[in-house]
């Protein structure tokens, strides 16, 4: 790397300079990205590979599928199913609610400044996840929460008498929506913007009603984006730990919570089972993310 030297202006052209430097310092060029690659290797790639490989190894080092088979016990299968359920539910509700909100704000005839405000808020709210979010919902819908009290004292409705409990599957799902919906809004708004006004007008000229336009043109065009974001929201909920830990703690056995307990204290009495558990989590979120990427590139191809 030639630092600080000045090139005589007449003797060289612009085309000469970069090429000469590149030729002279080819190994040095790679040096520029070496720290990054080393960092990624040591603290991102290798740890993940370690887990993946560990899932297939026994304590003495030989290859085995026994760890994965060991996942087929009731409590782990239950945890997997529970995780799937909450991820599917919050992804679905997040998609529907997020789409409704995004549609309302981008093309629903609302004042334009509401759109910017909503997008800004969504940007912040999608980062509200974790421990503070759990506290916020406890403070609002817990036994002494503001909403609970208001509903009881002002409207005479005791939600806890109906069997509702914030510290439950339902409560956690409700809490998850707080960051799922904003994420949906952020991702689907560009796709909604991509729905050209002329399509709707052309459809109208050809006799279509609003509903027919949505059914026959807009929704099919949005479909890849919707499905892809659904997959993304699914993966997002599946891997979430902090919110669950702070809200339901060990009482709701979703996969990340079990893995957490296993890492902390080997509650499953088999360290390699932890690997297998982690591996299955990677597979599930990996597939979901893969679907998201595939569908997103397909959506982009259609609507140039």
């Amino acid at each position: 790397m030639i630092a600080g030297s000045k090139q005589p202006m007449a003797a060289t052209t612009v085309r000469d300079l970069p090429r000469r430097r590149l030729g002279a310092s080819l190994p040095l060029t790679w040096l520029g990205v070496a720290p990054f690659l080393l960092f990624a290797l040591l603290f991102l790639i290798l740890p993940t590979i370690q887990i993946v490989l560990g899932a297939f190894r026994t304590p003495d080092g030989s290859v085995t599928l026994a760890n994965l088979q060991g996942l087929a016990v009731p409590n782990i299968l239950n945890a997997t199913w529970l995780s799937m359920k909450i991820s599917l539910l919050t992804a679905l509700l997040g998609c529907v609610a997020g789409l409704a909100l995004a549609a309302a704000v981008t093309r629903g005839g609302l004042p334009p400044w509401l759109r910017d405000a909503t997008l800004t808020f969504s940007g912040v709210a999608s980062n509200f996840a974790g421990v503070p979010l759990a506290f916020a919902f406890i403070a609002t819908l817990g036994r002494l929460g503001l909403m609970t009290v208001v509903l009881r004292d002002w409207f005479g409705v005791n939600i806890y008498a109906t069997g509702f409990n914030l510290i439950s599957f339902t409560g956690l799902a409700l809490t998850y929506l707080y960051f799922q919906i904003p994420l949906m809004v952020l991702i689907i708004t560009p796709a909604l913007d991509g729905l050209k006004r002329e399509w709707r007008e052309a459809a109208e000229c050809l006799g279509a009603s609003g509903g027919q336009y949505w059914r026959m043109v807009a929704l099919p065009v949005l479909w890849p984006s919707l499905l892809g974001t659904f997959a993304l929201l699914f993966a997002n909920a599946f891997g979430a730990v902090a919110t669950a830990m702070a809200l339901t703690g060990p009482s709701l056995s979703i996969m990340p919570i079990i893995l957490f307990a296993q890492i902390r204290g080997d509650v499953l009495q088999d360290p390699h089972l932890g690997y297998a558990l982690a591996f299955s989590m990677i597979v599930i979120t990996g597939i979901a993310n893969f679907i998201y990427i595939m569908l997103r590139s397909r959506a982009e191809r259609w609507v140039k």
Partner: peptide, 21 residues
């Protein structure tokens, strides 16, 4: 692709890898 990996791999997995590695 590398910079997107932390969004795909749940943090709990990453820290599990750290502890083992």
């Amino acid at each position: 692709f590398i910079t997107l990996l932390p969004l795909v791999i749940p943090p709990i997995i990453i820290v599990f890898g750290y502890i083992r590695l």
